[in-house]
């Protein structure tokens, strides 16, 4: 009854589409892989480890102190937490993870905010991109690793690529929402004084939507962090790969320690980005 036609070759189509993209855009992917890869290796291998851990810890603590409204809690937590990671010999792994998270988040924001603005301004873009975003977020994150490897090989670059797809939607959605939430009164007011579209955007809509957009960015950063372990499967170095290798060797202890390291990093990043939002409002 249900076998009225042969199996739809969606898997084959996808594969041929991917290899077509891979071949056609190789001229694009190769330089990205090389230059971006080198850049990331430099950041995670030389730049960040070049900073003495004690200095790095202090910088983070000072930032935490000021964004949390000169309260000591987060600063103290940062110092103890980061020292613990150092103490466990995970400092280099931490630096790799920080690089991956920061770069992935940064790219997500650079891409996500303009796309969010586009969705807020254009009904057509909104109706096309909404299902795309749903798709991006609900597809299991592991699936992104496959084309990522196809395009960029293994290592940190495909990790960033996969994180990007997974982590961008919240920034887009929240930017869209934030701009749409600006009250009609204010839009009318700026129109009535003869503001141009971009004046309205930069002087009224974005400042008014800032809180919401920051909440989206916070989500994006947390999702990028959650991709760290997954990305380690395609060779992205960092705390994630520690967890992965512990899993392969069934060594509960090291796995737990690396996991704690991720948790510490997550808490510090989350609280700092959240407080930046509050401080600015």
């Amino acid at each position: 009854m249900l076998d009225f036609m042969d199996k739809i070759p969606l898997a084959e189509w996808t594969e041929s589409a991917t290899s077509w993209i891979q071949d056609t855009f190789a001229f694009l992917f190769e330089p990205i892989k090389d230059h971006f890869g080198n850049f990331m290796d430099f950041v995670s291998g030389d730049l960040l480890p070049g900073i003495p851990p004690i200095l790095f810890i202090l910088i983070v603590a000072v930032i935490a102190f000021f964004v949390s409204g000169k309260k000591l809690g987060l600063a103290v937590f940062s110092i103890i937490g980061l020292w613990f990671v150092y103490n466990q010999g995970l400092w280099d792994a931490l630096m790799s993870t920080v690089t991956l998270v920061i770069l992935a988040s940064l790219l997500s924001v650079i891409i996500g905010v303009p796309v969010g603005i586009l969705m807020a301004k254009s009904k057509i873009a909104n109706s096309i991109l909404t299902p795309v975003l749903d798709f991006m977020q609900t597809m299991p994150a592991f699936v992104y690793l496959i084309p990522a490897v196809a395009f960029f090989g293994i290592g940190m670059v495909p990790g960033v690529f996969a994180s990007l797809i997974f982590a961008t939607p919240p920034t887009v959605r929240f930017t869209n929402l934030g701009i749409r939430q600006v009250s009609n009164d204010l839009i009318e007011a700026s129109d009535s004084f003869g503001a141009t579209g971009s004046q309205k955007l930069f002087k009224v809509e974005l400042p008014m939507a800032k809180g919401t957009i920051m909440a989206g960015i916070n989500q994006t950063v947390m999702l990028a962090l959650s991709m760290v372990v997954i990305a380690s499967m395609i060779g992205a170095p960092g705390l994630g790969s520690q967890v992965l290798s512990s899993l392969q060797r069934a060594s509960v202890g090291t796995g737990f320690v690396a996991g704690i390291g991720i948790v510490i990093l997550a808490i510090i990043i989350d609280r700092i980005t959240q407080n930046m939002n509050k401080a600015k409002r």
Partner: peptide, 9 residues
């Protein structure tokens, strides 16, 4: 223009 709900930024 002046608005009912002020519409200040």
């Amino acid at each position: 223009m002046v608005f009912q709900q002020f519409a200040l930024f």
